[in-house]
């Protein structure tokens, strides 16, 4: 299984340069104060969210799945390896956000360390949620229709969050409930939020993994 994860990252290496250039631009924009640290975190989350699409595209181009099933690994392990890739990438992205925003907080008094943690939490939560939804869809629909699926999922997520927020705020007493909720989340503290999002993200990924295994077990190659 280690080899399958290594394969994913070796394939992604090709995209690393282009991602690196965009990353450098984001860093420059954040350092110069033009953009907030949260933009950087959002970019990293998006990067991890795009990752499975790239992996599936590479597999599709090389017809890798046919070969993978001839290797001494089960279908379950093949799916697990893909989730492993995503989890490693998500953890690495959060680490980059934490380190970068931490350095920024040290350099600029205007940035508080809580903001850094919250940014990293948001990045982690968003990327794990996106992947938890995307991966079963990718197993079900394949890489070719993945781009359409990806943007539909992204748009759908934004819409759902916006509707929930608006609906709750517009209900009688909704604003109070909404504020209570945000207060409750805020009361967790920065590290509490990070922990809660991590646990929630992993639970979502586990559910997503079980669905993906069911889908992949039925696929005929």
């Amino acid at each position: 299984m280690r080899g399958l994860i290594a394969k994913d990252f070796l394939c992604l290496r090709k995209s690393a340069l282009s991602y690196g250039i965009v990353l450098a631009i984001y860093i420059a924009l954040t350092v110069t104060g033009l953009w907030d640290v949260s933009f950087f975190a959002a970019f990293m989350a998006m990067l991890v969210g795009m990752l499975p699409y790239s992996c599936f595209s590479y597999d599709h181009a090389a017809k890798w799945n046919l070969y993978a099933l001839a290797l001494p690994v089960s279908r379950r392990q093949i799916v697990l390896a893909r989730y492993g890739t995503v989890l490693i990438a998500a953890v690495a992205a959060v680490a980059v956000v934490l380190v970068f925003s931490g350095v920024m907080a040290l350099m600029l008094d205007s940035i508080e360390w809580e903001v850094c943690i919250v940014s990293a939490t948001a990045a982690l939560g968003f990327s794990l949620l996106l992947n938890a939804i995307m991966l079963p869809l990718l197993y079900r629909f394949g890489a070719e229709r993945a781009k359409l699926v990806f943007f539909s999922v992204l748009g759908g997520l934004v819409l759902i969050v916006a509707l929930i927020v608006n609906y709750n705020v517009m209900q009688p007493g909704g604003k109070a409930v909404f504020l209570d909720l945000t207060d409750a989340i805020a009361s967790l503290g920065a590290f509490g939020m990070l922990g809660a999002v991590t646990v929630a993200g992993i639970v979502l990924l586990v559910i997503s993994y079980l669905i993906s295994v069911r889908i992949y077990e039925r696929i005929e190659l």
């Binding site: 394969k7 070796l10 394939c11 290496r13 090709k14 590479y58 597999d59 181009a61 090389a62 017809k63 890798w64 046919l66 070969y67 001839a70 290797l71």
Partner: peptide, 12 residues
């Protein structure tokens, strides 16, 4: 196993 193609991604 050797199938009728090379299944390693071209960028590898």
């Amino acid at each position: 196993v050797v199938l009728d193609d090379c299944f390693f991604y071209e960028g590898l």
